[in-house]
Every structure is written in C-alpha cells, then in structure tokens.
Design a binder for these strands. Structure first.
Lengths: 194, 194
DNA sequence: CGGATGCTAACGAATGTTTGTTTACATTGT
DNA sequence: ACAATGTAAACAAACATTCGTTAGCATCCG
C-alpha cells in the first residue's frame, strides 16, 4: 500500500489553504473555513497535516526555495546582466501566473510565521534581494544600466511585478507572454518616449 | 464644553490602529492589543469609537478620499501628461512617507470592510484607476509615452510605488526627494541605458 | 451636580486543536 | 479462503483560550 492518496489530500489542503489565505489572510481564515473548502470536517484535516502554522510554513518556504534556486541558476549562466534581470523578472511573472495564490501568501502572510522560521524566512528573502541587487549593480558597472540608486531600482522592479497577483487573470485579454513583454518594456525602457 | 479631548483620543486610537493593522493585519489585531498600545483597557475604547469595523472604515476611506480629490485637482491642471503622471507618482510616494501605516491598511486590509462599504471602496478604487489610466492613454496619444498596454503600465506604476511602505524609512540614507527622483527616473526613463 | 471617561466583569461566539470512536479497507496468518 | 489484525481517514463532541462587545459601577473634572 502506497501513500499516494494521503499525499494527494495533503496537497489538496495546501492548495485550498493558499487560496483562502490569499483571499482572507492567514488570521482571517479559520480551519473550519478551510475544511469546508476541502470537503471535510476541521478535525479530519489533522490526519493529514500537523497544524495551521505548518500549512503556512510549507507554502512560504516552497516559494522561497524556488526563488533562491532559480536565482543561483541565473547567476551561474553566462549572459549579459540585462538578460539576467529579464530572466528574473520573467521568473517572477511566471510563478505569479502559475501559482499566484502561494506567491501571494509568501508575499503577504509570511509575517505570521512563528519563530524561529520567521527569522529564517526574512534572512532568505534578504539574501535573495542581495543577490538581485548585486546583478543590478554589476549591470550598472558594465554600462548596461543607468546609474540609479540600486536599492530603489531593486524594490521598484520587485514591486512592479506584484500587481500581477491582484489583477491579472490568464485568458482574459493578455497572454502571459504579452504580459511579460509589456512589463519588461516599461521596466527596462521606461514609460517616456525617447 | 467642546469635545476636542474626545476627538484627540479618537485620533490616537485611529493612529495606533493603523500601525497595528499594518504590522499584524486587521484580523491579526485584537482590540486588547490595540488598547494596550493606546494605554487603556479594551472596553474603555468604546467610549470613543463605535466598533473595530468603524476603525477600518475610517482609515480606508480617509486615504481613498485623499487620492480621489488629488486626482481631480491634477486632472484640472494644465500641464503635460508626463507632468501629471509625475505629480501622481509624487503624491503616492508622499502619502506613503507621511502616513505609511494608513496607506498600507487601505492597500491591504480593505477586503475586511463589511458590506456595503466594501463595494463602495472597490468602486472608488476602480474610478481612481480609470482616471489614472485615462491620463496614460492621453499621454500615449499625445506622443509623450511609448505605446504600451495601458493597463500594464497603470498597474506597474501603481505597484512600483508600494514597496516604499515596506522598505523606506525616512532619515536612513535617502531623503524623500531623492527617493521620488530615483523612482521617477526608473519608471519614466527605464532601467536600461539608452 | 452631572456628564465624560475609565475600570472590572461578564457575555456569547469563534478560535485551533485533542479526544474517543467508527467505518472501510489492506495485510497477515493459517 | 477467510477470519483476525492493523491502519488510514473520517466524524462528532469537547477542550481551553481568545475574540468583539456590553453592562454596571467608580472616579474625575468643570
């Protein structure tokens, strides 16, 4: 007997939890709400999960780990810095489109992580930002980017991608590819006509 | 006898509520937490406020009203479209710097507004976005902006300003003015060297 | 005096989680 | 082949705690 069923149920709970956490927030979502969405009683979920905290932990760190490993991969690739930034922006957009609920939770509800995981998460994010900033800085040094304040550029780019979670619905108007191209045009080329 | 004292206490409660809602979220903040921050018992606050919902309502609509009235003012001013966009971006940054907690609450916790105020808030925001988008569209038509997707440009600009609430601390490194200039450079001129 | 403002105590409802039990099915021993 | 055993997964009920809010009473101040 394999536990494929059990894993599937756990994944179902995680997926529904991400959706509810995104819509109502972590504190605003009760285990009974979640159970209703999953299709069982709240108590029954504890056959598949350890706690509400654990759900949040799993959702947040899966996203965090994805970003970190992808950053390492891009750092190791021999392409111009502008292409590295593009690849990172594309990664953000793609993850947002494909797993928007989880990304949203990792962006907003990480603060409800209990210690010591909260500190670990913040550290991981800081490391990611540091790596991202280093790419921008190197791009400026290489003459590929304009000499703007690195932190401002970093956070402007990171934030400019967040609205996708709030607004974008695939199959309604823009395709994911058009979305990427438009955002990259604004971020890299700027709004003003040259 | 005037109620200046009562109003002052009410404003204190509102200010502390905005701070706590920002840090812990609306659902994650209890009235006892808030009372502790204000310096009285939870029950005592009800001499100054009607309910927890009312706090959220006041915080959200004060911000919303500010944006709407300022947009109307900018729309009525005879300046180039690029200057109108600049003025709006500056407004967002300035409000974020001056009243970051309230802006953050209006950005994130509006979804906990009870009906019918929730619908009113969403409608107000939609109207604001429509007005903002019209300015971008007119700017493109006038040849001031590059012909990008208007919605993408709108949300990219609106989001690019949100990180200020998460990251920027006045008096640490950048001044508010440098901040504005750097963000405007990235958004209007783009990251890439021309 | 009398209203404004604070407190303690308490309310019912909702919270995350544990307990005890049942059902259904897979595995084992013979 | 089949009863015995083990286990996964669901449930209802209850746990202690916390929630927003109200009631009743004290105290201060003009």
């Amino acid at each position: 007997m394999f536990k494929t069923k059990k894993v599937a149920k756990r994944e179902l709970i995680l997926a529904e939890a991400a959706k509810l956490f995104k819509d109502r927030g972590y504190s605003g979502t009760s285990m009974r709400d979640l159970a209703g969405q999953v299709g069982m009683e709240a108590a029954s979920m504890y056959n598949h999960i350890k706690s509400k905290d654990e759900l949040l932990d799993t959702i947040c760190f899966r996203i965090s780990d994805t970003y970190i490993s992808q950053l390492a991969e891009i750092e190791a690739t021999a392409i111009p810095f502008s292409e590295k930034i593009k690849a990172l922006v594309r990664l953000h957009i793609r993850l947002m489109v494909e797993d928007g609920a989880a990304v949203s939770v990792a962006n907003h509800d990480w603060k409800y992580l209990p210690e010591p995981r909260l500190t670990e998460f913040k550290q991981a994010r800081k490391n990611y930002e540091k790596g991202f900033a280093a790419l921008i800085e190197a791009g400026i040094a290489a003459g590929e980017f304009r000499p703007v304040n690195v932190s401002v550029a970093l956070f402007t780019v990171l934030s400019a991608v967040r609205w996708v979670e709030l607004w974008y619905r695939p199959g309604r108007g823009l395709s994911a590819e058009e979305l990427e191209n438009n955002i990259l045009t604004v971020l890299l080329g700027g709004l003003a006509q040259r």
